Simulated assay, not measured.
Amino acid sequence: MRFKYDELSQAPLIVNSIYEGGSKGNPAADDPLTKLFKVEGYLKSVGNRSGFRKSMKENNGKSTKEVAYVVIFSTGKVKEWPDFYDKAQGVFTYYGDNRAPGNHYLNTKQRGNILLKEVFEKAASNSPAIRKTIPPMFVFESTGVASNVEFLGIAVPGIKGKHIDESLELITVAEEGDQFQNYRATLTMIDIEHQGISRKWLAQLKDFNGNPNNYAPKEWINYVENGIKYVQPLDGNSREVILPEETFISPSEKQYLRKTRVTQGKFRERLLKHNQTCKICGMDIIKLLVASHIKPWSFSNDTERTDFYNGILLCPAHDAAFDNGLISFNRDGSIIISPLLNKENQKLLNLNSDLKIELEPNHLKYLEWHRHKVYIRDK
């Protein structure tokens, strides 16, 4: 997706999405990250300079010394410090913020290397309580067009199968006779929900008294509770960016969008031939029925995208609840209702724990994916 500059203060963080900068011609004023991370109800955002930007927690309208989260911004163009994202493996290599010969590697303006050192020390702990104090790191890369940036995902320190001490290396670089040191950090990009990161989570992180697990991505909670060994890395290649039609798109992108619409139209037709009512409530206004993918389109391969058994016909309200993980279904077709959906809203949606839908065996593998990757189990 693509978000324009004036939309950023309300925009969710969606992997591979583009966030446009301003048009004033002033790099500081046009910086999209400052606006994107200005959380409603809190005074300060992240800075508009450097590749390592911290946002501090706030207490009663005042900044504290505790880090809420970090934004890592890479241009990908500094030869001496070649930050690199391996999308297939979900591994991001980031070089620290000491870029000046003769300067001690921990003595940097943004104190980024000090924070990296602290974060990796906490990651080495076996205590979930200590990992809970690790600030999330949101990684962005320049698109090369104006001030626009692309969101790559959330990074956690270390990678599976490698000791945490080996994931933060102190390297020495020689430049014109001077030697200086810097960190090379290896980070894992975690697999977050396709609908992206809620701004409510950013607010919880900013609040000195907030709960950093409230509204957090499920894989972030998994990391906090179980450590890097059990984390599911993000496959960045599986996330496709589909731009709104009103933005400029190239001929190849137009061809892709045209193919997408045709494929989804045929998919809906197949579902309608089998049944013409909402699977949950029985609503039979055909124009309103949504052909919902159980395993979302963005995560499915070409075969799965057109597979009849990866589909379920729903009315708009139940489609939205299903797509956002507020409901799912067990193998026997019985409904599972997320704790985020209170009794009042369950009643408005005509949902109850006795509800059960008919399923066929080929539906089950897709529903298992939905239960583990989309359905929200915790508040």
Rank of each mutant, 00 (worst) to 15 (best):
S17C: 09
I154A: 00
G112C: 08
G311Y: 01
E80L: 15
F299K: 08
T186L: 11
H293R: 00
Q89C: 13
S9M: 11
K4G: 14
S338F: 07
K109D: 12
R199S: 15
S127P: 01
F92G: 03
P82R: 07
D191N: 15
E360W: 12
M189E: 13
T277S: 12
N330D: 13
F3P: 01
K77G: 04
I72V: 15
L348K: 15
E246Y: 13
G177A: 06
K373C: 05
Y223V: 00
R2P: 06
Y94A: 04
V91L: 11
W297S: 05
K273E: 07
S334M: 08
T108F: 02
G153V: 04
E40D: 13
F37G: 01
A29I: 07
I72T: 09
L205I: 08
K162P: 01
F151I: 02
E169A: 13
A11L: 10
F92R: 03
G333V: 11
A174D: 12
D6C: 14
P296C: 05
I221F: 00
L168T: 11
N350V: 14
L257I: 12
E175T: 09
V15Y: 04
E176Y: 10
S142L: 00
N226D: 03
D302E: 15
Q255G: 09
L234V: 10
